[in-house]
């Protein structure tokens, strides 16, 4: 029970800390003092207090999308296992629901971006659609092939399956970590796929879609994307964490890994430049090859000689 409670706490409040850490790391690399660590929370509150401007050309979809987006991300967060492999709702096939809930939110984001009838937003929408089309099959292939390995088709079962003490599963885990890191970077539009701080509409992906949102709507969307970071990085954390740890150790390690991921993202954003737009699909396609590799290793280890 306490795990579920902690999960909700982490899900709702840790994102601000996460973003704060990223910003602090970037400030450190840039030699600046940096904004307060909870600045994103203050921004969120400020946005909630503001009024909003809605374009006359847009329809109902534009108005309901931010809410839908936030809700879908939170729902996805309820399904994903966090502390000690516990998730709030666990059932067979929950990872499918997870993928489709995220896709649902994304679908509405794309619709709303097109709804504004701004050419920039449409461009962002088309990019978003392309990249997510590249990502989703990989996500499903990796998770379901791991599920195939052990006849487990729930998130929790799949993630615990990998925690065996043999070398092949170490290999599989490292492949999966790489794949999910790329998935996270692409889903949350961080460097090197997209730069959240960019101010050039032509090259933006996520930011350009929300150009027309303001006030609480913008706050919802920003908050949703922060939560998404936590949701996806907790998958990575659970891939790395060994099973059957004592509760407190598991909790501490889990939080530690999340913080480390935040630091890593900060470092990457400070060191690397974003890729040229034409290179982004190539970068994302890399995980397709990882997914095929995972699939074939698992296939062979079930039917072939690998034990």
């Amino acid at each position: 029970m306490i795990e579920k409670f902690l999960n909700i706490l982490i899900l709702f409040f840790f994102p601000f800390l996460f973003i704060g850490i990223i910003n602090r790391v970037k400030a450190f690399w840039g030699g600046r003092k940096g904004q307060p660590i909870f600045q994103s929370f203050f921004d969120f509150v400020k946005l909630l207090k503001k009024g909003q401007v809605i374009s006359k050309n847009s329809s109902l979809i534009f108005q309901i999308t931010p809410t839908i987006y936030l809700v879908t991300v939170i729902l996805a967060g309820l399904i994903v296992p966090m502390v000690n492999y516990q998730n709030i709702f666990s059932f067979d096939g929950d990872f499918l629901i997870f993928a489709y809930i995220l896709a649902f939110g994304r679908f509405f984001m794309i619709l709303s971006a097109m709804d504004t009838s701004s050419s920039f937003s449409g461009m962002g929408a088309s990019r978003e659609a392309t990249y997510s089309a590249l990502i989703e099959p990989v996500f499903l292939v990796i998770l379901s092939s791991i599920g195939f390995l052990s006849d487990q088709i729930s998130f929790k079962g799949i993630l615990t399956t990998l925690q065996q003490n043999n070398i092949i599963s170490v290999l599989l885990i490292s492949l999966c970590v790489v794949a999910f890191s790329i998935i996270m970077i692409t889903e949350c539009k961080r460097v090197p796929v997209d730069d959240p701080n960019t101010h050039l509409e032509l090259t933006m992906i996520h930011e350009v879609m929300i150009l027309d949102n303001s006030g609480p709507d913008l706050g919802f969307i920003l908050y949703g994307s922060y939560i998404k970071l936590i949701v996806l990085s907790s998958i990575i954390a659970n891939l790395i964490l060994p099973a059957n740890l004592a509760f407190w150790i598991a909790l501490c390690l889990f939080l530690l890994i999340l913080i480390l991921i935040a630091v890593a993202i900060g470092c990457i954003e400070s060191i690397f430049a974003r890729l040229r737009l034409i290179r982004v699909p190539q970068f994302i396609l890399l995980i397709t090859s990882i997914a095929i590799l995972v699939l074939s290793i698992i296939q062979f280890s079930i039917f072939g000689g690998l034990k």
Binding site: P281, Q282, L285, L286, T288, S289, I292, L293, L295, S296, I297, Q299, F300, F303, G304, G305
Partner: peptide, 25 residues
Amino acid sequence: IPNYYSVIIATLVLAFGFFISYWSN
């Protein structure tokens, strides 16, 4: 051909290699 296509081709070939191992087993 661009490298990212050759990555995909190489992966498919590798998967084919796994398939051969499975079959020859």
